[in-house]
């Protein structure tokens, strides 16, 4: 039985156009590359996630700053941050048994035991699965709701768009929309991150009198309280945002929660 070293030398000594050597080199290069990439990715993941989390927090803070009078309101209410609550999306009730600090909606959406598969006809935002619970951010004063912020996400043109939708106490008026994560085409769809575009959202209304979700991004100029100007050259990114809001304000999204808030209050 030859030693492994001798086998290795015999392998290297084979001619370069030999089939076994070609195959062996291909496997080895792929294997080593895969190990290097995986090790780096796994080692650096906690750092990267910390950055993403800090970024998300900063965007919520920035969103609060864009809302007129929100800081003053918060000072009056004696809080310096929004309160995070976990909501069960199926019945719209709070789920106090889940710790908001450790709940990861993104991870939960991938596991079968903490999420549901969406029926294709309801899955307008292209999500495939939806977590059973979602964090919402609330601002209240003396038991009255002042602001509710809902995290939403959906498929855009070439990436998953994640955003925060802030609603006024009437639960039908948009207070702000902030895109927290996207990878759309730089210069076109990626402009949904620009404050100028996000400034179009405050004051828009979600549903019409009959309760149909009407809010949408339109091509060209918006008309009426439900429409928002699209970005030229980024129609599919705009459609992605429309679908995302349609989904998350619908029955598989936050509709049960919003209905319950309207009926019962906090």
């Amino acid at each position: 039985m030859p030693s492994p070293m001798a086998l290795w030398r015999a392998f290297l000594a084979r001619p370069n156009d030999d089939r076994i050597k070609t195959f062996g080199i291909a496997v080895l290069v792929a294997l080593v590359s895969a190990v290097v990439v995986s090790v780096t990715s796994v080692t650096l993941q906690p750092l990267q996630e910390a950055h993403l989390e800090a970024e998300r927090q900063a965007r919520i803070e920035a969103m609060l700053d864009t809302l007129p009078g929100m800081r003053a309101l918060m000072e009056e209410a004696g809080v310096d941050a929004l309160e995070t609550r976990i909501v069960s999306l199926s019945d719209g009730r709070f789920a106090p048994e889940i710790d908001p600090a450790s709940y990861d909606m993104r991870a939960a959406a991938e596991l079968p035991e903490t999420s549901i598969a969406l029926p294709p006809e309801a899955d307008v935002a292209g999500l495939k699965r939806r977590a059973n619970f979602a964090p919402v951010y609330l601002l209240q004063r003396d038991g009255d709701l002042m602001l509710v912020v809902l995290p939403v996400h959906g498929t855009g043109y070439q990436s998953t768009i994640r955003a925060m939708l802030a609603l006024e106490p009437d639960l039908n008026t948009v207070a702000a929309l902030t895109v927290t994560e996207q990878g759309e085409t730089p210069g076109l769809g990626a402009r949904i991150e620009e404050p100028d575009w996000q400034a179009l959202w405050p004051g828009k209304e979600i549903a019409d009198q009959t309760g149909r979700i009407e809010i949408r991004v339109v091509r060209g100029e918006a008309s009426g309280p439900h429409q928002v100007d699209g970005i030229s050259g980024a129609t599919r990114t705009g459609n992605g945002i429309t679908n995302m809001l349609q989904f998350w304000l619908g029955e598989y999204g936050y509709a049960p929660f919003l209905d319950r808030l309207e009926r019962e209050g906090l």
């Binding site: 370069n16 070609t22 080199i25 291909a26 290069v29 792929a30 590359s33 895969a34 990439v37």
Partner: peptide, 24 residues
């Protein structure tokens, strides 16, 4: 030891892995 028939694939695999590592 890079076989001529798959040399471009081997090269691009090595380059791509390094790019991913740097991106990470």
């Amino acid at each position: 030891h890079i076989p001529g028939s798959i040399r471009l694939i081997v090269q691009i695999t090595i380059i791509a892995s390094m790019v991913i590592v740097i991106d990470e």
